[in-house]
């Protein structure tokens, strides 16, 4: 588990934990609820090119930090062995967030139901 995720009444908060906090160079990523579009499990995303790292950490089998590709910035904090949770954002600094968490399937359902109650 590389991150914890908290869903408040109006914010999604991703907090890198342990050593990954240092590697990802972030205390936390906070996104207003209105800017969260959806969450998915996506094992294949780690096999695609992630773009240029700027800044972040390069350790084999571990992606941490901000990556830029095709004009988009993605925040990664995930080990290769984790099941990736992809959180799509809009009108935010990051286009999407790709993280490893303790219970990925439960988190994906929680995020999608959380934004379904937005209106």
């Amino acid at each position: 588990m590389e991150n914890t995720v908290e869903l408040t009444s109006d914010q999604l908060v991703v907090t890198p934990i342990g050593m990954t906090k240092i590697a990802a160079l972030k205390e936390a990523v906070r996104v207003p609820k209105a800017h969260v579009v959806g969450a998915s499990i996506d094992a294949g995303i780690l096999k695609e090119s992630k773009g240029l790292r700027m800044p972040g950490t390069a350790i084999p089998g571990y992606w941490a930090g901000t990556f830029r590709k095709a004009g988009e910035e993605t925040f990664f904090n995930i080990k290769q062995t984790s099941e990736p949770v992809v959180i799509q954002l809009k009108d935010a600094r990051y286009t999407r967030i790709v993280i490893g968490v303790a219970q990925p399937r439960e988190l994906v359902d929680q995020i999608n139901n959380w934004i379904a109650t937005r209106d």
Binding site: V37, G38, A39, S40, I41, D42, G44, I45, E48, K69, A70, E72, V86, Q88, T95, R96, V108, N112
Partner: peptide, 20 residues
């Protein structure tokens, strides 16, 4: 991605998630 031939990032941008 394979069935549509559309970039993963474009699919996420338009639909938000697999559930979307």
């Amino acid at each position: 991605v394979a069935a549509t031939g559309v970039l993963r990032g474009s699919l996420y941008r338009v639909f938000g998630s697999k559930q979307g």
